[in-house]
């Protein structure tokens, strides 16, 4: 299996895995725009009706909805902050003891934001589950993403897991030598510095050596670049794109006219 580094990408042989990354990106962008501009949260939440069949066809249904587990605490706070303290609240729902007031427009606003975040997360998660980052970058490069930017994104995804394991090893090693991971705050802060010294030093050395390695492989060459990965835009991509745009426009119009 192709190792995609730090991503949630899951290699599967599904219809949407084979759809061009740009097509899927267009869906995502439309959803993001819609979730900021639709009239109310019902219209936003209704977008979930679309993602269900798509996620089933992508063979990642349960994974697609997993962001909810990371979000529920944030949503509780959101309803608390906006419900009681919405800065521009006018419509009272209920007066509570100690001078607290629960505002109706505050709660509605919270619902609107929660729907927006949840829908963006679900579509976003579906996108990364089905899109190999290498394919994403190479398709973006073909429509003008600067070569260097593509390099940065791909490399970062590759090296973060390595940095993490490296750091975890250092932490474990230091811990066995009596590194203060409990103790009081000052002690813990002090033990922080010896952990980071080697990290920064090693990073600089790595940056210098890596840039030599890149130079040795014509990284700074002028002229057109090609790509080893190639995702073509097929007819089905064009069809999906047109449907997406048409749907988005009509849903937007519908939400404001009905």
């Amino acid at each position: 299996m192709a190792n995609a580094g730090l991503t949630s990408y899951i290699e599967k042989n599904s219809y949407f895995h084979k759809v061009n990354p740009l097509t899927k990106l267009l869906i995502l962008i439309c959803v993001i725009i819609l979730s900021f501009t639709l009239k109310n949260f019902i219209y936003i939440l209704a977008l979930l009706v679309i993602i269900i069949p798509i996620a089933i066809k992508s063979k990642v249904l349960s994974m697609t909805f997993s962001p909810i587990f990371k979000l529920y605490f944030m949503f509780i706070l959101l309803f608390f902050i906006q419900g009681f303290f919405h800065p521009y609240a006018t419509e009272k729902l209920i007066d509570l003891p100690f001078g607290f007031t629960l505002w109706k427009d505050g709660l509605l606003y919270a619902a609107y934001i929660a729907a927006r975040i949840f829908v963006m997360m679900v579509f976003g998660y579906w996108f990364v589950l089905t899109t190999h980052p290498g394919d994403l970058v190479s398709s973006l490069s073909r429509i003008g993403l600067p070569h260097a930017l593509g390099y940065i994104i791909l490399t970062t995804l590759q090296i973060i897991p390595r940095f993490r394991t490296q750091m975890q090893t250092i932490i474990d090693a230091q811990r066995s030598r009596g590194l203060e991971t409990q103790g009081n705050l000052i002690q813990r802060l002090k033990s922080f510095v010896p952990l980071l010294g080697p990290l920064f030093m090693g990073s600089v050395q790595q940056a210098v050596e890596k840039s030599m390695a890149l130079e040795a492989r014509a990284f700074s060459a002028k002229g057109e670049k090609t790509s080893y990965r190639q995702a073509t835009i097929k007819t089905k991509d064009k069809v999906i794109m047109v449907i997406t745009v048409l749907f988005s426009i009509s849903w937007e119009v519908l939400s404001w006219t009905l």
Binding site: A148, Y151, I152, T155, T156, I159, I160, F163, R164, M167, L199, F200, S203, Q206, A207, V208, K210, S211, L214, E215, F219, S220
Partner: peptide, 17 residues
Amino acid sequence: TTTALVLIPIGIAINQV
């Protein structure tokens, strides 16, 4: 520069670490 470009992924990794 190339060195600066290579530094970016490393800087991002440091943020994460």
